[in-house]
Structure formats: C-alpha cells, structure tokens
Design a protein around this nucleic acid. Structure first.
Lengths: 339, 339
DNA sequence: ACCGAAATTTAGATCGATCTAAATCTGTCG
DNA sequence: CGACAGATTTAGATCGATCTAAATTTCGGT
C-alpha cells in the first residue's frame, strides 16, 4: 500500500453504511430501524438508534425516492401570495401538511400560465406526490386531464377548470351570494347590483349565476352586473358608474372586501351614507373589514378552513388515487355589520 | 416457468435509458445533451432532443442529486405568512429563485422554534442547497453556527440572531426610526414616544436603540418606550396608557402600520385629532396605510426588495460558500401623509 | 493509405437508500 | 440430539442520474 499524504478529508455525508459500520450490523437492518419495521429485535433497534444519533446521520430522502417512488413533497400554486386570502389559505395548507410530515413547494404564478407551467415541470422533476392548484387565469381547460395522465394527484382550490369532475375545494360562493341577497331583500332592498371581478374564473361566474337566481327567486329583476378589476380604485370608479346610471341601486354586493372598501370610500366622497342610503356587502372578511368605519358587512369565506380541507383531501387522494373525486364546498357565513 | 396472467402493466417512468434506446445512443450521451454540454455533435444533439420530447421524458432531479450533491431547492422559513409584510417578502424571494430555476420549500413557523427545527430537519433530508431564515422568537443563538457546521448556506432576514457575523438582509430599521424622529422634531415635536413590538427580536431592539440615539442627537430626552403586542387592539390599549400617563407625548412612532392604525382608532375614539394634536408614524407602508383616513404617515420598508436581495445573496453564497458574509440594509423611505 | 490529434461517444462504477430472497439464529419438542 | 418453525439479519440487485477513463470516429496533412 502506497503511503501518501491524504488530502484534507472532504466532509463526506454520513450514510446508512456508516451507521451500519458503527453499529456492527448491515445496511438493511439500519434501514429497517429507520422505517420502524417490527422485524428488528428490540435490543438491536435501541443500539442502532443510539448510533444514529451519535454519528449525526441525516436521512437522504432523495435516495429513498429512487426506490420507493414517493418523495413526501407536494406543490402549491397560488395566483398571488400577497393577497391576504391566499396567504391564509397557504397557512391552512401548511399546517396540515406539516402535521402529515410533508414538505410544500410554493409557487406564486402571478396569474400567468407560463410561470405556472414552468413550475409544474419543475416539481414533476422533483417527483412531488401531489399538487394543490388555484389555476392561473387563462390556463387551458385540459390541464387537469393532463395531470391525471401524468398520475399526479391534484386538488383544485377556489377556481375550477376542466370538466368539473375533479377534486375541488372552495368556499360556497353561490350560497354566500344567496345569503347576502336574502339579507338585503329582507331589509327592503329591491334594486340590488353585483360587482364581480373581471377575471374569467369559476369564482366570478358562480357569483353571477347565484345572483341572478337569487333575485328571480325573490320575484325581482336582477340589477346591474358591473364587472370590475379587483382593486380599491377600480371599485370606486365602478360604483361611480352604477350611481350615475339610471335605476341607481340601493345595495351592491362586491366580489371581495377590497372592492367593497373602495366602493365605500367613493360613497363617502359623494356624501352618501354607506349602510343607510346605499348598502354594501363584501366577500372574505379580511381583518380590515371589522376594523374599518363604518365596519363592513361581508360574507366570511374561511380561507384557513378551505386550505385545511384542501390539504386533507389531497392526502386522501394520494393514499387512494382511484377513489372517486370529491367536491367540497365550505359554507360561508354572512357577517352583518354597519354597511 | 409458471404461466400466469400478467397484472396490468405498472406505468414505469420514462428514464434516460429509454431515451437512449429510442435515439440509438448511450445513456451518457443523453445525459450530456440534457446538461447542454458542448461535447456532443450538433446533429446528435438535435436528434436526441427530438426523442426527449417524443417519449415525454421527465428529468429525475432526485437521482441527479445523488451524484451531484446539489438539489436546486432552497428552504424559506417565515414566522407568519399571513402577515402582509412576509407575504410580500415571500413574493420577492419567489420571483428571484424562480428566475434562477430553483424551487422553494415554504414553512410557516408561527414563531415556534420547535416547528422551525422540524422543518430544518426535513429540508436537510431533502438536501436543500440553502435556506432563508427569519428566525422564530426564542431560537437559540447557536443556530447559525450549527447550520454552518452542516454546510448549509443561510441568509437571515429581518431578525438577526447569532454573533452578527452572518449573511443578513433587512430594512434599515435604525435609519427609518431616525428619519421619523428627525421629521417629527423638525415639525416642533419635543415629547416623542416609541411603541415597539414586545417580541424580543433584533428588529425591535434596533428601533429602541435608534430612537434613543436620535432623541439625544437632538438634545432631547427620549420619551416613553411602551412595548406592545403587534395587533390593532393591543396598540389601542397601549397608546391609551401613554395618553393617560403624565408627560403625554405629542407624537408616537409605532413598530408597524397595524399598530399605528390601532393607535389612530383609539385617538379618534377619544376625540383627539390624529396628525394635529398627536402625530402617529407607522412602519411598513401596507396598502391600507395610504387608503385609510386620515392617511397614515409611515416608514416604507420595501419588503419585496428585501426578499429579492435576500434571494440574490443566497444564490451568491451557494455559489461561493467561503466568501465573507454580507449584511445588506435596504434603505427605507419616510412617507409623510396626514398623521 | 496512414498517422496523430481532436472531436465524439460510451461502458461501467457510483451516489444512498429499499427490496427480495435467502441465510442465520433462536427456542421448542419428540 | 436433530428437526423445524418462527424470528432476525443480511447480501446483492436496483432505482435513475453523473462521472471517469477509455474507446471510437473524424479529419487534415503527408
């Protein structure tokens, strides 16, 4: 054997083999210990576990995935993480997946299908076990079928694309809209308008459908439907047009609280008392809603719960890929405040 | 050999080997094509690339990591994703890492060191190349050293723990506090109070230090320092105590906009005009700040930029682990509005 | 046609886990 | 004591990529 100065030892990873060596058993046995197999004798297990800790072993999940085909990770795609609604949703998902011992890849698609596609390709390379998707506007309807073909479990949230026969979790926007209309009608309103988002998503379409149905259900003609970009300023302009038009509405149901707050600001600018002369109802119940003055009446959509349910459903689907799809609608609550 | 009905063919993954077979070359060649090596002949490259697309090949990054030791992923730990500041920060980080072709594991620590530890263990198992950390309150000061020992690149954001000699990116809270005090003093205020967060983080300590220094710099006695939990309600109570005490301040600098808004609400409740009788300055410039009435004066801390810089620094550190650490402070902007 | 250098391509080992099938080690019982 | 069942343990192949070192091809120049 040649005697040569050994170069500075490159800090090699501690592997199963090292642990096995230290414990005086085979790699296979250590592997069994790691996976809590009942096969190993209690004494052996204890000894191996001690060694595991002693040598500072770190499990290499990538190597394991190579054999088992499962990575313990999932991907989450949201259109806009800075929107408080999605932030809450994310928190709910994170909570459940953390508890299940899984890790989450996060992507912010900015509602751009190209970013979304890129992200999907990348997480496939990483072998995610499933994906929670709030599809970017403009996503081809074929995506869910595509994912199924790739055998990638997928739960959609909030916005539904495809043939409607896939796993899906969302607040029940229709029920929320209905509750808002019922409440307004019960308080004497007859000319009610809807201000949905301009986004062409199922979340917007559903509100429009429910609005028309609810109004007809009360024997009323549906009032103006004024789609509007989701921002305070745009909503202020939007309600301005409604107020200037003929048949000025006495109540407006807005797509979300942000828009509702913008609308209220415009009412006050015009000297119209929100809640007295014109009622405004929002959606989401963001923290600011309760705190604003006047406090905003709104349909609370429990994003945390939506997130939790979506995560649970995904875990179920990963465990049983061939079970029939589920559609879970989280019932919202109408919160009546001052407006 | 027993003749038995073969079970439905398990859809095996398409691998390098399959592509090689289809293209009539060796696995090694396909691998070179994938990594855009200049070694392969242009004609071969084209042919292989065509096959790659034709058979629907998906790169297996886990397998690659086994040899290369690098995974192309990083971990992001924030204390509270539902806080708009962290949501923006996350968006900035996501933007840069996406561009760099990397994936982000997200964890919401809820400011609990145990969750944080669990997450760190998991992402180590997945072989992340680095981590962006906003340490949970109560994290041991030894964590950065520990990470270094594990050879895990780490950039801290917002809150700094350890010996202060590690990579760190944050808004310059001290400069922001100074700017706020300067502005208030220039407008005639003499009795100025500070309402920092009760969290024992560097972000809070820094504000306190800068506050005292700035006041002394103007030849003034620092006013009351009233630590307060970061919420609207708590801030309302907090400012209540300041107003009831002797030496009632004429201006209060709050830890963030949320608290500032809570304080303003309390002022109005007491019939005190914000901005006239008592001035309030917040931190962060959340969207609501500009929109509130009266509009909130605040120190804008550009979380998106902080996120981007942190991501860029991490990429640099991963590329050059032994370069000296950097501390990057993003200069904030004082935005003077009505309060 | 042949040589050597440069340009391409490839066989086979390797990363760190799991899996299969077989080996070894108990303890019990006739 | 020897056989046998049940309990443990293990050797060696394998997952899908990369890397090394060597083999093969191409090509200009004589």
């Amino acid at each position: 054997m040649k005697s040569e100065a050994r170069p500075v030892e490159e800090a090699r990873n501690v592997t199963l083999k090292d642990v096995a060596q230290a414990a005086g058993v085979s790699r296979a046995t250590v592997s069994l210990v790691l996976r809590r197999s009942p096969l190993v004798a209690p004494a052996t297990r204890q000894h191996v576990e001690a060694m595991l800790a002693a040598v500072g072993y770190v499990y290499n999940r990538g190597a394991a995935r190579l054999r088992t085909g499962t990575s313990g990770t999932i991907g989450l795609i949201v259109p806009e993480i800075t929107n408080p609604f999605y932030a809450e949703l994310t928190a709910g998902i994170d909570e459940i997946l953390d508890r299940a011992g899984r890790l989450t890849f996060l992507a912010n698609s900015n509602d751009r299908p190209d970013r979304q596609d890129r992200f999907i390709r990348r997480i496939r390379e990483h072998g995610v076990d499933g994906i929670i998707l709030c599809a970017a506007e403009g996503t081809p309807q074929s995506l869910p079928a595509q994912l199924k073909e790739w055998r990638l479990a997928c739960v959609q949230v909030l916005r539904s694309i495809g043939d409607g026969a896939d796993d899906f979790v969302a607040p029940d926007f229709a029920a929320g809209t209905l509750a808002a209309i019922d409440h307004l009608v019960a308080h004497g309103h007859r000319r009610i308008a809807l201000m949905p988002s301009t986004r062409k998503t199922s979340a917007a379409r559903e509100r429009v459908g429910a609005f028309e149905a609810a109004m007809r259900g009360h024997g009323l003609e549906p009032g103006a439907i004024a789609p509007c970009v989701s921002s305070r300023i745009a909503a202020a302009e939007g309600i301005g047009r409604l107020l200037d038009g003929r048949d000025r509405p006495t109540a407006v149901v807005c797509h979300n609280d942000l828009m509702a707050l913008g609308a209220i600001a415009e009412l006050r600018r015009r000297g119209i008392a929100p809640g007295r002369e014109v009622s405004i109802v929002g959606f989401d119940d963001i923290p600011e809603a309760a705190d604003a003055s006047p406090a905003l009446s709104t349909v609370a959509t429990a994003p945390l719960d939506v997130g939790r349910e979506a995560a649970r459903l995904l875990l179920r689907r990963i465990a049983a890929p061939d079970d029939p799809p589920e559609r879970i609608l989280i019932p919202p609550t109408l919160i009546v405040r001052d407006t």
